[in-house]
Write a protein that binds this DNA or RNA. Structure first.
Length: 352
DNA sequence: AAGCCGGGGAT
DNA sequence: ATCCCAGGCTT
């Protein structure tokens, strides 16, 4: 053994011996399926491996090929994505699948530049697909790689400014023969050993050369700007049932919060989607034909605000006509519909 | 450049 | 209760 080992070789050796078995990772001897790589990378945007796994497998069952996905109904895709969050990803996923199927003969482009032009594919995902699916000389940088390299080189500039240095360091390390494995090894290292808190430096292939470890800075890098506190919003859910036991749901517009998803009519927390129901039916509480305030209160945390919802319920009067963009849906169908997690919480609070 | 956009696992 | 995640789009 030489006294000094090439850092990239040490990383790839660690990766070969410790690679987690992930459903979208092809065996060494089999070429990866670009559809699988693309689907997994979109799902993994700001989302952990544990969360993505069951969704990835469900999508491959429902939509085995990019052509099958392209042929699916919008609502079927939104329903399959329900609970995964960042719903613009699902809309762009479908947009991209139809583009690939209809104008690219079902084949994903194999260069970083072409991939970057597709809906839902930004700088990270374009580089990741180019490297992993096509073994191109591309160097994706995600949150894991930022952390690993900020520590390896003890980069003390706070995010996001440090991204420029990280990008340069990363590109300098990419090996010519295994760019895809290098990217995945870096991300695996960040996800399993070089974690944000309490990194397991004793098992790290770079424990001997990590500058942050030598300085005792491993746990504190990368530095981040302090975050702003989340504002708090409150709202009211209107749970309206018809004679068949179906509940009224509102399909939200495609753009914006929970775009394209089904939500119970509500007021007070999202002005653009305030419901006409209380005006249509009268919002007096505890009157014979009015709403009944339920005990249920639902708390949910979004990216940029915290939400507390109270629930009012009643049955629809005879002759009630549902407003535009509303549907009746029986609770037994909630599990397979496009209900976001916050609305699933509301349903559970009312039904149980 | 900054804000918007979900949800859940880990600590 | 807080952090942060295999980020992209919009303004």
């Amino acid at each position: 053994m030489p006294a000094t080992v090439d850092p990239v070789s040490a990383l790839l050796d660690w990766y070969d011996e410790n690679a987690r078995s992930l459903p979208w990772r092809a065996p060494r001897t089999i070429a990866p399926d670009p559809y699988h790589v693309w689907l997994s990378e979109i799902m993994l945007q700001q989302t952990t491996v544990t969360t993505v796994k069951p969704y990835f497998e469900k999508f491959l069952t429902l939509f085995p090929t990019v052509e099958a996905l392209a042929a699916a109904q919008d609502d079927a895709v939104m329903a399959a994505w329900a609970g995964l969050g960042y719903y613009s990803r699902a809309r762009n996923l479908l947009k991209c699948a139809r583009l690939i199927a209809n104008t690219h003969a079902g084949r994903f482009p194999d260069t970083e530049a072409e991939l970057l032009g597709l809906p839902g594919i930004g700088p990270y995902t374009a580089a990741a697909i180019a490297a992993i699916a096509f073994n191109r000389q591309a160097a994706p940088v995600d949150g894991n790689i930022e952390r690993v390299l900020a520590r390896l080189y003890a980069l003390e500039t706070p995010l996001p400014e440090v991204k420029v240095q990280v990008k340069a360091k990363n590109e300098a390390l990419v090996p010519q023969d295994r760019p895809g494995d290098f990217a995945q090894a870096m991300m695996d290292l960040g996800a399993t050993l070089c974690t944000p808190k309490r990194p397991n430096c004793l098992l790290c292939p770079w424990q001997g050369i990590c500058a942050a470890r030598k300085k005792g800075l491993a746990e504190t890098l990368p530095k981040r700007a302090p975050k702003k506190p989340k504002p708090h919003r409150t709202g009211t859910i209107y749970w309206l049932e018809n004679a068949k036991g179906e509940v009224l749901l509102h399909r939200r517009p495609d753009k914006g919060l929970l775009g394209g998803m089904l939500c119970f009519p509500s007021n007070g927390w999202d002005a653009a989607n305030d419901s006409p129901l209380p005006t249509l039916l009268g919002n007096r509480q505890a009157s014979q034909n009015g709403w009944t305030q339920l005990e249920a209160e639902v708390v949910h945390v979004f990216t940029h605000f915290r939400l507390t919802l109270n629930v009012q319920a009643r049955t629809a009067p005879k002759g009630f006509r549902k407003p535009a963009d509303h549907i009746w849906l029986h609770p037994r169908a909630f599990d397979t519909a496009a209900l976001p997690s916050v609305m699933m919480k509301v349903a559970k609070a009312v039904l149980f």
